[in-house]
Amino acid sequence: MIIHAARLSIANLFAAETRKVFWKVLGLTLLALIALWFVLRSTFIAFVLPWLQSVMPPVPDWTNWLTFLLAVLAGLGLALILALLISPVTALIAGLFLDDVAEVVERRDYPGDAPGKALPFVAAMKSSLKFLGVVVAGNIIALLLLFIPGVNLVAFFMVNGYLLGREFFEFAAMRFRPPEEARRFRSQYAFTVFLAGLVIAAFLAIPLVNLLTPLFAAGMMVHLHKLISQKEAARRG
C-alpha cells in the first residue's frame, strides 16, 4: 500500500498539472532566496563588518591581503547560510500549494470520488508554518545527534519519518474529515503512517531532489489516505 502510494505520487510529479505547481514553487523560492541574499549581505555590511573593524586591532598596509581574504570567507559564509536556508524556504512556500497538488491527485486518480475541501487561507498558512517548523525541528534534532556514532542516520530517519508522516497524513485527511477526526484516524493507523513517513524522509535525504519533498509527500499521503479509507469502507461493507 505504501509503495503503491509512493509510486503513484512520483508519477503525479510528472503530470502537466503538477508541473505548473512545481514551477510556481520554484519561481517563488528563487525570488525569496534572492531577497534573503540581499538582506544577509546588507546586514553583514551595515552591522557585522563595522563591528569586526571596531574590535580588530589596526593592521599594517602590507596585510591588506588579509582583509581581502576575510571578505572572501565572509562571502562563502553567506553562501553557506543561504544554502542551508534552501530547504526551509522551499518547505514554507510549497506548503501554500499543497492543496493544489491534492486536487490534481484527486482529479486524475479518483475522478469518481467527491473532491476534498481545500483548507482556508489562514489554515493553509498555519499548516505551511507548521510544516516549516517540523522540517527545522527535525533536522536540528538530527544534527544534535550527528556526533553519536550509529545513531545519527537512524535519528534522521526516525525523527523525520514520524514528523513528516504525521503532518502530511493529517493534511490529506483534513481535506475530507474534521481536524479531530483526522488526528484520530492518523492515530489509528500510526504505524502505517510512520512507515510512509520513512519513505518521505528517504526522499528528503536526496540532494536537489529533496526540493520536491513537499509536493511528493502531499501526493503520497493523499493516495495513502484514499487507499486506507477504501479499505475501511470495504471492511465495513
Rank of each mutant, 00 (worst) to 15 (best):
S128K: 00
T67K: 12
N12E: 13
L227G: 04
L163E: 03
A74S: 15
I34N: 03
G116E: 01
L66S: 08
D109T: 00
A202H: 02
A83E: 12
A16G: 06
V135D: 02
A233G: 00
M174E: 15
L146Q: 12
Y110H: 11
L84Y: 15
Y110D: 01
V154S: 02
I34T: 10
F14R: 12
L28S: 05
A6L: 10
G138Y: 02
L85K: 05
R41A: 14
I148A: 06
L164I: 11
L195K: 11
P58A: 12
V72K: 13
F157E: 07
G116F: 03
G161I: 05
L143N: 11
L31T: 03
G161M: 05
L31A: 15
N152G: 10
R184I: 02
A6W: 05
E170F: 00
D113T: 09
R19A: 04
F14L: 12
G197Q: 06
P50H: 09
Y110P: 02
I140P: 03
L52K: 13
E103T: 15
L143M: 14
A6Y: 03
A155E: 05
V136A: 11
A94N: 01
P58S: 02
F171P: 01
G27W: 12
V89Q: 08
R177E: 12
Q53S: 10
V21F: 05
F169V: 01
F44A: 10
E17D: 15
L28R: 14
F203W: 12
R166S: 11
A94Y: 00
I200C: 08
A91E: 15
L85C: 15
I81D: 01
A202E: 01
A142P: 06
V136M: 11
F38G: 06
G138Q: 10
M1F: 13
A201R: 08
L30W: 03
L143Q: 15
P120M: 07
T90V: 15
K130W: 13
P178R: 11
P58K: 07
A71C: 05
T29A: 14
L164P: 03
A15K: 14
A32I: 09
D109C: 02
D113Q: 13
L212I: 05
R19V: 06
V55N: 12
F47P: 01
L144S: 01
L80I: 14
M174Y: 00
F168T: 00
V21A: 01
I86C: 09
L13T: 07
V134L: 08
R183P: 02
P60A: 11
A173D: 08
A217D: 09
V193C: 02
W62H: 14
L215V: 13
E170P: 06
L84H: 13
I200Y: 05
A233P: 04
S229I: 06
A190I: 05
E232K: 13
L69E: 09
V222C: 08
P214E: 08
V209C: 02
E232P: 07
I45N: 12
L212D: 00
A202C: 03
P50T: 03
V209R: 08
P207E: 12
P115R: 09
T192A: 12
P214M: 07
